[in-house]
Write a protein that binds this DNA or RNA. Structure first.
Lengths: 173, 173, 173, 173
DNA sequence: GATGAATGAGGATTCATTCAT
DNA sequence: GATGAATGAATCCTCATTCAT
């Protein structure tokens, strides 16, 4: 991966995340990256190819986050770690998450299979904790966290810690 | 409002909701509406004007939903009603909600002020129920409902009822 | 001629004169005239028809100016009167002259035949005054006056009177 | 400057000069130049930018004409040279002059500052020749030359030489 | 690897004009 | 006489993509 290639990816991530994929022209990306427009196509074949390359990185990021949770065996500890995820999105990952969440609303934007293994682990945790309806609990938790991520990516409230505490209370953590 | 004007609004709502605002050309809208492209601009001035007209309807819808909750005085009853909102999105409103949620991710997409009165009411309800941190509780609930709406608008799970029950349990409703 | 018809003519004259015929849409004319766009076509058939109606008025104006000179028999007096024409363009005629001069540059913009009788009279005057080459003198004088009109219509200098005097001197008037 | 770029400039000059700027579509220019329409915008940014590029060349032409007069010190010689300008407009410059004169009638069409140095020189010449009102004489001469240029650009009379002689006589040249 | 010229299809928008009322 | 809805062609301009260098 050459330097210019990285510049293109960074520029595209930034612009796709802030202005949207459809509204970002390859021309804009090239200018932001300080690169000729043709080079984008040499490296990534098409605008879609460029997006795919970025999403590839995004999926790596997701897998890495999950891996950190996977190693936990204690169910309470696992839930706790999982809940904390959206509350500590790092500045450096911000654009990537924003892009991935925005793309959910695009047709073909979101690959649901990537979350399946995580769902299984969570279900297992809820079962160990003897929740009545583990499947529903998994869905509910995912919704909470999607809502939290959405909120933080869009307006960044000032009482994150309080919110996290309120959430943990509901799960007696 | 002539019939063709309504056709344009319907067609635009459908296409904006499913394909995205930026990816939907006015040409597509005109064809879907069975109308000349020029007519869109005569009635709505610009593509943005067309979107604004649709969102105006969306805000009406939101206000109406809130009004239904506003009349409730019992705090538990209010929370219950509020929570149920995303669980009973009607087929006829589906596209409108999808559009509004998708637009949140667009710059200038979302007007936060519209939720402020609702927040005040919820805070009051949590205070009456003697929750420790009402502000955080409001944010948390809003987040959850955003997550729920997102989930239902994007994949429509089959165990909605179980999820709602699990949620109510957490608030002892 | 109804009032609305006059409004249309006035509005069109103003806009054609200031913004150019091609750059003025019938929509703009209708708005300026406070009239529906369709009415323009009912009365004048087409945008070109509207222009023709205005130019008709312009030709009347020209003929009237010429008639004032025609009645003069003394050649010096005639030249003097003729020279003074562009120096005393009235505010009320300003737009009309501007339009007619601007249209010269448009293809088919200018009807040269309208000046022919005037040319004959001027030639006759120069002959009586025993100028060596009356034909050339006519052309020269017309150029002077076209140049003067152009100048006054475009920037209105402050020393008009001096300029007129200098001009008269050259013809010993 | 590539060959296609020059083709665009030539085509645009021709069409703008003959049909007018507003009435010439970029589509027509592209076809006349044998070029894709998009290329116009890649090279000149906008239709206005294309016009500006052409006018830039026009201003060069004007400056060059003036420079030829500037080197003359004898006042009579200078006036003579200046007067002859419109009488010897070269075929190759014809379109450019036509365009520049036509644009005077457009808003923002004409930059008057470009003539200021020339005016100063002419005033100086008239002063040396002890004309009574040099300022007025300058204006008068400019007007005449504008009128002459207009005439030659629009109908090209056949007795140019006679006209020039008549003019010189009036200035005792 | 990298550029910049070049393209053709499609973008939103404006235009003169028609027609039912 | 007068309106305003409606149209389809044309407007300027942008787009993703290709290609010679």
């Amino acid at each position: 991966m050459t330097e210019k290639q990285e510049n293109i990816l960074k520029a595209a991530l930034k612009l796709f995340a802030t202005q949207g994929y459809a509204s970002t022209s390859t021309n804009k990306v090239a200018k932001e990256a300080g690169v000729s427009e043709g080079l984008i196509f040499r490296h990534f074949e098409s605008k879609e190819g460029l997006l795919a390359a970025i999403l590839e990185m995004g999926h790596e990021l997701m897998k890495q986050k999950m891996a950190e949770i996977l190693i936990t065996s204690d169910p309470k500890e696992m839930l706790r770690k999982y809940m904390e995820l959206p509350f500590k999105i790092d500045q450096s990952e911000y654009e990537m998450w924003r892009l991935m969440y925005a793309l959910k609303w695009q047709t073909n934007g979101y690959d649901t299979t990537i979350m399946e293994p995580m769902k299984l682990l969570l279900k297992n945790a809820f079962e160990k904790l003897e929740y009545e309806n583990p499947d529903a609990e998994v869905e509910l938790l995912l919704m909470f966290l999607d809502g939290a991520a959405t909120s933080f990516l869009l307006h960044e409230p000032n009482n994150k810690q309080d919110i996290l505490n309120s959430l943990k209370l509901k799960y007696k953590l």
